[in-house]
């Protein structure tokens, strides 16, 4: 039901909006939602953090960018390559780090993000270095051309909605329960026979793959990418989206992505204070409502519902 409403909303917005600026903004919200959703799966459900998600985002964008612009591959061939490469990188990062406590994963992914940024800048024969990579073609599917901004909007949101739908299903499955169990108590989860290490690696890879898909969509939308779009601040922006939307909330990711996309656009002074705002948001929300805005409101609602329920009799053997 919620999907139908959202779909209708996107369709209405797509046909209703005429200004290219607004369409572009909505498209970016879709791409950011993908990023936030992916990281949310990792942070909210597995209780692990990644401070280098921009590198996975960048990997997706650069792999498809290089393959299509330099080697003239079809984007649809480049997509699986981008996904596979990102998954492999994420797997290698996750395998040893997820055994360690959350702080080390934070530092490790931070370091990985820096490595990614340096590689995008320095490997200029492929990536174009600081001046960026130009000439990434737009997407085409048969007779349908996504060079048209509205079509691209629909494409991005179709992918985003599909991912939200799939993640929602995953969370409400056996795997999702196991993930939440790890988040609540790793010791108890492993005493239930859950292979916590393996599951954490899987969710990390899933999270990175979603970032890569977002990167793919981003690259073919803007047709020009440069390292600046994948630096540390971008990783922080994604974390902030998750924090605003609330960890462990698929729909919160949408909210976080919308806020973090619209806010910088509407506040023109924002660039000066961007970092201060991010920092304050992260600190304040973590202290006051660690579940995030969205989840915080839901929690109040759920608590109220439980209070009114009747009290059962308890265990009697």
């Amino acid at each position: 039901m919620r999907y139908l409403i959202l779909m209708a909303g996107v369709l209405a917005a797509g046909f209703g909006l005429s200004s290219p600026y607004q369409i572009q903004l909505l498209t970016f919200i879709g791409i950011n939602s993908l990023l936030a959703l992916g990281l949310n799966m990792l942070m909210g459900y597995a209780g692990q953090i990644s401070l280098g998600h921009a590198a996975f985002f960048g990997l997706g964008a650069y792999v498809t960018g290089v393959l299509t612009a330099h080697f003239h591959w079809s984007p649809w061939l480049a997509l699986p390559v981008a996904i596979l490469l990102t998954a492999a990188a994420a797997f290698l990062i996750a395998l040893p780090l997820l055994e360690l406590s959350g702080f080390y994963l934070g530092m490790g992914t931070l370091g990985f993000g820096m490595i990614g940024y340096v590689v995008f800048r320095q490997w200029s024969s492929l990536t174009g270095g600081d001046s960026g990579l130009v000439g990434i073609p737009s997407l085409e599917l048969g007779p349908l051309s996504f060079a048209d901004a509205k079509n691209y909007l629909f494409l991005v949101w179709a992918v985003a909605l599909l991912c939200i739908f799939l993640c929602d299903r995953l969370i409400h499955s056996r795997i999702g329960r196991a993930l939440r169990a790890i988040h609540d108590s790793e010791r108890a989860a492993s005493s239930m026979g859950i292979d916590t290490g393996r599951l954490k690696v899987h969710i990390f890879v899933l999270s990175a793959v979603m970032a890569a898909i977002a990167g793919f969509l981003y690259a073919h939308l803007v047709s020009f990418i440069s390292p600046g779009s994948f630096d540390f601040l971008v990783s922080i922006r994604i974390v902030t989206m998750v924090v605003i939307g609330g960890m462990a909330s698929v729909w919160g990711a949408l909210l976080g992505a919308s806020v973090m996309t619209i806010l910088p656009e509407t506040l023109t002074v924002f660039t000066e204070y961007e970092m201060i705002v991010y920092g304050l948001i992260m600190i304040t929300i973590m202290i006051v409502i660690p579940q995030g805005l969205f989840r915080g409101i839901l929690d109040i609602y759920e608590r109220a519902r439980f209070r009114t329920g009747s009290i059962p009799a308890g265990p009697q053997a």
């Binding site: 056996r174 329960r177 196991a178 169990a181 609540d184 108590s185 989860a189 239930m192 026979g193 462990a248």
Partner: peptide, 23 residues
């Protein structure tokens, strides 16, 4: 050590993890 964010039923369902296969 219960899973605090889950309902009573969900806690027991986590216990079924090893008896189920869905990936």
């Amino acid at each position: 050590e219960l899973f605090g964010s889950m309902t009573v039923l969900e806690n027991v369902l986590v216990g079924r993890h090893v008896k189920t296969r869905c990936g």
